[in-house]
Design a protein around this nucleic acid. Sequence first.
DNA 1: TTATTTGTTCAGTAAAGACTAAACAAGTTG
DNA 2: CAACTTGTTTAGTCTTTACTGAACAAATAA
Lengths: 156, 156
Amino acid sequence: MSNYEENTKEIVDSFIEQMGMITQSEGLPRIAGKIIGLLLIESGPFSFSDIAARLQISRGSVSTNTRLLENLSVIERVSKLGERGDFFQMSQDPYMKLLQGSMQRMSKASQTIKEARNALPDSWQASQKRLEALEQFYTEYLKSTQKLIKTLYSKE
Amino acid sequence: MSNYEENTKEIVDSFIEQMGMITQSEGLPRIAGKIIGLLLIESGPFSFSDIAARLQISRGSVSTNTRLLENLSVIERVSKLGERGDFFQMSQDPYMKLLQGSMQRMSKASQTIKEARNALPDSWQASQKRLEALEQFYTEYLKSTQKLIKTLYSKE
DNA sequence: TTATTTGTTCAGTAAAGACTAAACAAGTTG
DNA sequence: CAACTTGTTTAGTCTTTACTGAACAAATAA
């Protein structure tokens, strides 16, 4: 799977780098994004050592970032009959858990704002109105994300 | 507007701190979040100096963070008849521009993935399938966000 | 049994980001 | 005119994050 022509290799390498940048702009380490990119574009599973060699990164970074992605349910660790060591591949619903994590943060934020709004004196009408608008933003965003999950995961 | 009872002050201060934490978890500086919290919970507009004094932060931080938020169209800089200096208040559609910025990043990511997918050899069916799934994720997310904007901004 | 492999942990380094106080320049007030 | 205010910029500091190479311990192979 690592034997392919030079032009394709450039496409693959470029994609992996870009995935690193995309993921970094979403708040995760660049190497995590490069691992995702590798697992997406080349059929796996990939061994721990393969990832380190292919992406030219330290084993420590592979350990840290695969663990992070595994905890986020984006990738999964598998074993292979007759082979030593761990292998990684994209998990089944790689993006659902990300969405769910996002929803949790929104839910918490919405709750915080609601509590503050309710605690304010009644005479603070303008403030309450502004807080209500922000709360509504998070509430609608939550609903929107729920629908998105439905759309993505009821089509299979 | 800064003269209110002790209990309410605690509610306000707590809210401001919490907004700082919420905004930080979304990738912006904590101080930006505290400025938002202040502008939301106390009716403004607030002068540059008021913000620095009220939040106990340096003038340099006020400058940096108000500029950041102004660039994101979350707050706006206004002047007041008969008063020196700049004042800030929440902008009209504070959250729309954030959503639009998010949509831009998604659109760009989706495009990157599409291009990589199309450049791959036809025989890379499994890879293309995975890339297609990721592209679909971004596409649906984009649609979802568009609908969210519609929902939020056609109700006024 | 020794050597090698494997994945984790640790100590260290570099970079980036956040924030400050001070300097600066422009504008305003006394 | 001098003093003060105002917002920006700069240099510096601190914290956090990301990453490395080496050490470590467990498992496996020779």
